[in-house]
């Protein structure tokens, strides 16, 4: 009987080592450990032995049974593992093939830049104000201290609808509109994004373009605040390492007026084609709100002061995205739009 047990154990081990599938192992399990299996038979035969032999053979038989059970289960795990490995290797794909092309859309680069500019000023407590694209001469010029026949009108050749109505040449009219709405509330802290129009069409001018205007009015607003606010903006949008400088300029609705330059983002200030070899790029115009404009808006220039600024969104986008041709913005070529 012991021989029989040894034989069963040997045969089973052999079988197990040769078995290549779960099915074969199950077959073995039935053959050896099943209700009519070989070990079961041996255990059943124990009753014919005498008591002493029964105990020792029974013990060995149980040991063999336990051993076989554990071998079967570990071999089962092994084979499951092998089968999984096999499946995984069969299922491998060329992961370099492109993904399913969901139609790729996107925002226009000017929208993206506008959003970026807006976020910076929103975080500084600004609100967004808007106004009509078709404006009255009063808001576009008169109330901004640009009377008829003022040479500054030359800077902005306009599209007229009638003698007194025109396509706004800048977003500045919203300054006065907002002041009229809010006066005498303080502070006024707005930016004004929007389309503007000038009668100019060549490689560097588009008859329609986008501006972002800004206006801050409060007690004790200073030129230093203008510098600090716009410097913060320049650093946020072009990086902390850009250098900023201010030089005197002229806008009829601000006094003193300033132009803000940043160190060239292309050559870092050493001089290149982008900055006309000056190392500096003109980014925006700004200034302290002219007291006459404050008065048009319903504020007393002795009691409150303010600063205003304006920038061309296309220019910022061109510098930021390395776009070399203004016309691309309104050409709407798919190959251009898809890059953003």
């Amino acid at each position: 009987m012991l021989n029989k047990l040894k034989e069963i154990a040997d045969n089973s081990e052999k079988w197990l080592s040769q078995a290549g599938s779960i099915e074969e192992i199950n077959e073995l399990r039935v053959k050896v450990l099943g209700r009519k299996g070989e070990i079961t038979q041996v255990l059943r035969g124990l009753k014919d032995l005498d008591a002493g032999e029964r105990a020792s053979v029974g013990k060995i038989a149980n040991q063999v049974k336990e051993k076989l059970e554990s071998m079967i289960s570990s071999r089962t795990e092994e084979i499951k593992g092998e089968e999984l490995q096999l499946r995984l290797s069969r299922e491998s794909v060329d992961i370099s093939l492109p993904g399913l092309p969901l139609q790729r859309g996107g925002k226009h680069p000017l929208t993206l830049i506008n959003e970026e500019i807006r976020e910076i000023f929103l975080s500084m407590g600004f609100s967004v104000a808007e106004g009509p694209e078709i404006e009255s001469d009063y808001y576009n010029f008169e109330a901004l201290n640009i009377p008829r026949d003022h040479p500054a009108r030359e800077m902005q050749d306009s599209f007229y609808i009638s003698e007194d109505i025109l396509l706004r040449t800048h977003t500045s009219p919203v300054q006065v509109r907002t002041m009229e709405k809010l006066a005498p509330q303080l502070p006024v802290k707005i930016i004004v994004p929007g389309r503007v129009y000038r009668r100019d069409d060549d490689a560097t001018h588009s008859p329609m373009f986008n501006q972002v205007e800004g206006l801050v009015i409060d007690k004790r607003i200073t030129f230093g605040h203008l510098k600090g606010t716009l410097m913060h903006f320049a650093h946020k949008i072009f990086g902390e390492d850009v250098k900023v400088r201010y030089r005197p300029s002229f806008f009829p609705f601000t006094e003193p007026s300033a132009e803000m330059d940043i160190s060239c983002v292309n050559c870092k200030g050493s001089g290149c084609r982008v900055c006309s070899h000056t190392g500096w790029l003109e980014i925006l115009g700004a200034g302290m709100v002219d007291p006459r404009v404050l008065q048009f808006g319903g504020y007393d220039g002795e009691q409150v002061t303010g600063f205003a600024f304006g920038m061309g969104v296309e220019r910022i986008a061109m510098l930021k995205y390395g776009i070399n041709d203004l016309r691309l913005f309104f050409d709407n070529d798919k190959r251009f739009l898809r890059q953003f």
Partner: peptide
């Protein structure tokens, strides 16, 4: 202009939006 110290407007920051 470059000799004028930059600063930020004081007072409470009213959240914009």
């Amino acid at each position: 202009y470059d000799q004028i110290e930059p600063g930020l407007p004081g007072g409470e920051i009213i959240p914009g939006g």
